[in-house]
Simulated assay, not measured.
Amino acid sequence: MTTPATPTTTGATTGASAVTGAVGSARTRVEGRDKVTGAARYAGEIPFAELAHGWLVLSTVARGRIRSVEDSAVLAMPGVLTVLHHGNAPRVETDYVGMVGRPNPVLGLFQHDRVPFAGWPVALVVAETSEQAREAAEALVVRYDEEPHDVAFFAGRSGAYTPESNPMVRAETEKGDLAAQLDASAVVVDEEYTTPEEHHNAMEPHAATARWDGGRLDVVDSNQGSTWVATELAKLFSLDPATVRVRSEHVGGGFGSKGLSPHQVAAVMATTVLHRPVRVVLTRRQMFSLVGYRSPTAQRIRLGADADGRLRAFDHQALSLTSTVHEFVESSAVLGRVLYDADAHHTLHRLVRLD
Score class of each variant (00 low, 15 high):
Thr6Arg: 13
Thr10Val: 03
Gly11Asn: 09
Ala12Arg: 14
Gly15Tyr: 03
Ala16Lys: 13
Ala18Met: 10
Glu31Leu: 09
Lys35Met: 13
Gly44Ile: 00
Leu51Asn: 03
Leu58Ala: 02
Thr60Ile: 03
Val61Thr: 05
Arg65Gln: 12
Arg67Cys: 00
Asp71His: 12
Ala73Gln: 12
Leu75Gln: 12
Gly79Gln: 02
Gly79Ile: 07
Val83Pro: 09
Gly87Met: 05
Asn88Ala: 12
Pro90Lys: 00
Thr94Glu: 02
Tyr96Asn: 11
Pro103Cys: 08
Asn104Gly: 03
His112Ile: 01
Pro116Asp: 09
Trp120Pro: 05
Val125Trp: 00
Glu138Val: 03
Ala139Pro: 02
Val142Glu: 04
Arg143Ser: 15
Glu146Asn: 01
Pro148Arg: 02
Val151Met: 07
Asn166Thr: 07
Pro167Phe: 05
Val169Leu: 02
Leu178Ile: 14
Ala179Thr: 09
Ala186His: 06
Val188Asn: 07
Glu192Pro: 02
Thr195Tyr: 07
Glu198Gln: 15
His199Asn: 14
Ala202Leu: 01
Glu204Met: 06
Ala207Arg: 05
Gly215Gln: 10
Val219Ser: 04
Gly225Pro: 12
Ser226His: 09
Ser226Trp: 01
Trp228Ala: 14
Thr231Ile: 01
Thr231Trp: 03
Ala234Thr: 10
Leu236Trp: 04
Thr243Arg: 14
Gly252Ile: 06
Gly254Lys: 08
Gly256Tyr: 05
Gly256Pro: 11
Ser257Thr: 08
Lys258Arg: 06
Leu260Trp: 03
Ser261Pro: 00
His263Val: 08
His263Tyr: 13
Gln264Trp: 01
Ala267Arg: 04
Arg285Ala: 15
Gln286Gly: 07
Met287Cys: 08
Ser289Trp: 04
Ser289Glu: 10
Val291Met: 01
Tyr293Cys: 00
Arg294His: 02
Thr297Phe: 00
Ile301Pro: 08
Ala305Ser: 15
Leu311Lys: 06
Phe314Asn: 06
Asp315Gln: 11
Asp315Tyr: 08
Val325Gly: 02
Ala333Glu: 10
Val334Arg: 01
Leu335Met: 11
Leu339Ala: 15
Asp343Arg: 11
His346Ile: 00
Thr347Phe: 02
Val352Ile: 15
Asp355Ser: 00
Asp355Gln: 00
Asp355Val: 00
